[in-house]
């Protein structure tokens, strides 16, 4: 349990607090992770991001901006959010958790099986991040795979081109379990050929990953037969065996779910 609670009123103060307290402080958003009694190490100082005006979903320029403190339930209830994001969000835990957990916290934790990250990757989402050296924009993939430093201010989701097709699939043991495998794909069907495919999978690596070799192999040709796609995916994921399933099972699931998502996207009429 933490022993200090800070309520900065500006981003600068929040960053300064964190900087001055070094490793002893953690940003606090909804707290489903930070306040969790099962958390591995409880930080001594909590720096709450609740007074920084980071909530709210707005449509601007060519996309939707989701403030970092927006809860997952607010995302689910928003009418301007892409339906695929809705679908992914509805797979996240349960009502009680979604009412509190924030998108910023979701990106802060960046679980291997994070439910929203795959779909955000397929939509080409970018992040606005406040860092000690000023505000920057980063693409989501670099955040997920790289250094996660600073305060996420918002997630910027560009409006997808009209012919982008998106599909998601997930598998969990029970409805409010964490996803064991979460997959999202997007592609364009260019006169019977796959173009610009993005294939993102959670649950097979330390973080959600894009299967770039799979994306490349699919490019420029009709979607191959089921078994070929499955084999392709299986060859490019390397999950670990743990108490929720063996590596072989997870690899099989990832292949099945990605293939399903690809097939479903491929067979769609272009959406939005």
């Amino acid at each position: 349990m933490a022993s200090h609670f800070h309520v900065p009123e500006t981003i600068e103060d929040a960053l300064r607090l964190r900087r001055e307290l070094h490793g002893a402080a953690s940003f606090l958003a909804g707290g489903t992770e930070v306040n969790n009694r099962k958390a591995k190490e409880a930080p001594e100082h909590l720096v709450w991001l609740g007074r920084l005006g980071l909530g709210g979903i707005t449509h601007r320029d060519e996309g939707v901006s989701i403030g970092a403190m927006t809860t997952l339930q607010e995302i689910l209830e928003s009418e301007i959010i892409h339906p695929a994001i809705h679908q992914a969000t509805s797979n996240h835990a349960n009502r009680n958790i979604r009412n509190v957990a924030t998108i910023g916290g979701h990106l802060g934790v960046c679980r291997s099986c994070a439910d929203l990250i795959p779909v955000l990757l397929t939509l080409g989402a970018r992040l606005r991040v406040a860092t000690d050296s000023g505000e920057i924009e980063r693409d989501l993939e670099s955040w997920v795979l790289g250094e996660r430093d600073g305060i996420v201010l918002s997630v910027e989701v560009p409006d997808p081109p009209g012919d982008l097709r998106i599909a998601i699939e997930n598998h969990s043991r029970t409805a409010n379990d964490l996803s064991l495998i979460a997959a999202a794909v997007s592609l364009r069907n260019d006169a019977g050929r796959v173009r610009n495919a993005i294939v993102a999978v959670g649950g097979v690596s330390r973080t959600v990953i894009r299967l770039r070799p799979v994306e490349a192999a699919l490019d420029g040709r009709p979607l191959p037969a089921r078994h070929e796609v499955e084999a392709l995916v299986a060859a490019h994921v390397d999950p670990i065996t743990d108490i929720r399933g063996s590596a072989a099972f997870k690899r099989h699931l990832a292949a099945t779910l990605v293939e399903r998502a690809l097939r479903s996207a491929w067979n769609q009429e272009g959406c939005r």
Partner: peptide, 18 residues
């Protein structure tokens, strides 16, 4: 669980400051 501003939340996951 209790309602916080009308929304169902697990009170074990929140601290007073929030």
């Amino acid at each position: 669980a209790a309602l916080l501003d009308g929304r169902l939340v697990n009170t074990c996951l929140l601290v007073m400051g929030q």
